[in-house]
Design a protein around this nucleic acid. Sequence first.
DNA 1: AAAGAATCTGGACAGGTGTCAAGAATTCCT
DNA 2: AGGAATTCTTGACACCTGTCCAGATTCTTT
Lengths: 223, 223
Amino acid sequence: MTNALNVDRTADVPVPPGPAKADRVSRRQVDKFAQRRDQLAAAALQTLAELGYARTSLREIAQNTDFSHGVLHYYFADKVDLIIHCVKHYKAICVQRYDEILAASDTADALAEGFAAGLARTAGEDATLHRLWYDMRSQSMFEPAFRADVLEIDDSLQRMIWRVVTGYAELSGRALTVAPATAYAMFDGLFQHALLRHLSGAPDALDTLRAESLTLLPRLTRD
Amino acid sequence: MTNALNVDRTADVPVPPGPAKADRVSRRQVDKFAQRRDQLAAAALQTLAELGYARTSLREIAQNTDFSHGVLHYYFADKVDLIIHCVKHYKAICVQRYDEILAASDTADALAEGFAAGLARTAGEDATLHRLWYDMRSQSMFEPAFRADVLEIDDSLQRMIWRVVTGYAELSGRALTVAPATAYAMFDGLFQHALLRHLSGAPDALDTLRAESLTLLPRLTRD
DNA sequence: AAAGAATCTGGACAGGTGTCAAGAATTCCT
DNA sequence: AGGAATTCTTGACACCTGTCCAGATTCTTT
């Protein structure tokens, strides 16, 4: 574990063991390899969401799987490699769900209501996944190995928020008064606050999040 | 570690080994005991701020100390007990520094400028301490043992923000349009966003935080 | 100065960690 | 069907973890 962090992580896949033959064959093997990688990453994501980064071990991950713990080192170079793959997997899930939230609305009010409700819904339904995201983002403040991927996900979330905010501004005919990073930080603050309360058992946390988000959108614009 | 989390943690001090004699003597010994506890907690805080929760061990903490690792179990029941004491120690530091920020300003603009500058300053000077706070807050989403103390600190930060916001509203003669929790969540989002960027090497992160905070205050009020 | 209490040390313990490699089991291709 | 490439299992390794404790050390009190 000590020098594992110094491993060269430029290559995404740690060499699919031995194809290099006919094109079709190679391609199929690589696909299969990547497929199992994703499958294992999904199991790891579930374990991480349940236990958090500090308490998750490779053996624990393998137990949420039909395989034994050794197989993880067949598909991933080391623990950091696995977790990074995991977090990218999270991004795919997350952006997808947020894009569902972005279902076309034709009025500013409808967009605002839909977006606020969507935030509250995902905060409730995917609470464990989101707390993992905040855990990983905190880890990245200590562990440079996670930083690049965390910042990339953060950017994609920021762009998602920005699409909503600009959409709202256009539909309402108002002008934007904040930068994309600022808008994202504010919504993220509300979301994180609500998530902690929700996980702590506060029954009104999600409703409050919806109401707060609703009032934030107009605050970012002016006539 | 498995059942350490089930330990009864209602009593703050795990029995100062053996006073129970004359009042003055007992009092002095208890003070000494508490004093060393704080001293060890301070060393632990430094270690945690440097390494993060997941990577901090009791032996590592003891190495930032003149004592051996065994002494930690003389002053603290277990690791969770030590860390909770640590985080409370952080609260004391944090609120104190924030109260310095609250130095009296006689105009709304001066208050806003001073507060925004103070946020940016503490984000830079106490960056490692603040990242520990976000780490612990994330941990509390997984580990119920931390939750009560984290929520208490969160509340005290929220009250601090609310004092600033209400002060700004009064000085500017404007009316508040948000709840205390909402105002705190927004500033916290900006702060956390800036802290991550700052620790990632973004040179403008702190300036951006100052500017963002400056624009947020008026947004929370109306004429 | 002697006795007793408080404090501290250093090692041992049981268990968990990431990593690796030898070999069994399976799959794939000809 | 047989041989080769793959996927997977199992057990081992070196190390680290929190916890505990017997005994050395220091301080306090009488």
